[in-house]
Amino acid sequence: MPSKQSTLFAVMYPITLAVASTLPSCPSDIPLSCHNSTAVSNSCCFNSPGGSLLQTQFWDTDPATGPDDSWTIHGLWPDNCDGSYEQFCDKSREYSNITKILKSQDRSDLLDYMSEYWKDINGDDETFWEHEWNKHGTCINTIEPDCYENYEPQIEVGEFFEKVVDLFKGLDTYQALADAGIIPDSSETYTFDEIQSALKKMHGQEVTIICDGDKLNQVYYYYNVKGNAIDGDYKASAAREFSLSDSADGIRR
């Protein structure tokens, strides 16, 4: 049996377990974003006004950026269901230390993946990640600090980058095109319809295809979400515009 002294020690120094930050469990009847007919009051379970979330990808060749057999991540952008969008929505949560934040949250595996597949064309990945969070991540209303129980500062930053990578892993643009016989080759050309058909087969809906001159350069995959942006149910939705030029105003965000 434990002695009286050891029992007293246990009483005097109880073990306290940390409680993790969590987003709320959303009701099953919450509408799909961009599909509500009336206002939705639960702002932590309904993405609005940025109810259309775009997972965007690059194929950079000048200079060649990222793996030879994969596209790279551009970002995850909340659009207002009509083509307009907000940006830099919370100055108090703009950060210039994404790498440090991810390391502090034990997300080293995520950071390693981003270092390979979320590349800046000029070699400054950190600044690129900061830009995507500050401009777009801060505008996703369902991951604002007030939405979390037991909020830990910057937890939403790590969860945002985890979600973007998770979506990207489910959208292997290179393989979808390769399966349709569309392989990068300076001597070969492919039609818009061939590319759109291959990507729609994977995504389930039409995508936005962007060219830099006559070279395929970017793809935008559209989603609506039932619930919050981290663990909600993502539903593929059709692009508002199917083909754009990278030289057009407002395209590269």
Results as ranks from 00 to 15, higher is better:
I195H: 05
H203T: 06
T191R: 02
T173S: 10
D185Y: 08
P184S: 04
D193A: 08
H203F: 10
D185S: 13
E194A: 14
I155V: 15
E194S: 10
P184C: 01
S186K: 09
H203G: 05
E156S: 11
D166T: 12
L171D: 05
G181Q: 02
T189E: 15
Q196W: 06
K200T: 10
T189A: 12
I183F: 08
D166H: 10
F168C: 00
Q196A: 09
G204T: 07
H203L: 06
V165H: 00
E159S: 14
I195L: 12
G181K: 04
G158M: 11
Q175H: 03
I195E: 09
G204C: 03
K201H: 04
A178E: 15
E162T: 13
V164Q: 13
T191E: 02
V164K: 07
D172M: 01
I155P: 04
V164D: 09
G204P: 05
A198W: 12
A178V: 13
V207I: 14
D166G: 08
L199S: 09
F168E: 00
P184L: 07
S197I: 01
V164H: 00
D185P: 08
H203N: 08
E194N: 10
Q175G: 00
D193R: 05
Q154A: 14
E188S: 15
I155H: 03
D179K: 15
L171Q: 13
L167Y: 04
Q196V: 02
S186Y: 00
K201E: 13
A180L: 05
E194Q: 15
G170T: 03
D172A: 04
A180N: 11
D166K: 13
Y190C: 07
V164P: 00
Q205T: 01
G181A: 02
M202F: 00
I155K: 13
K201Q: 10
D172P: 00
T173Q: 11
V157W: 06
S197L: 05
D166N: 11
F160M: 11
H203A: 02
G204E: 03
E162Q: 14
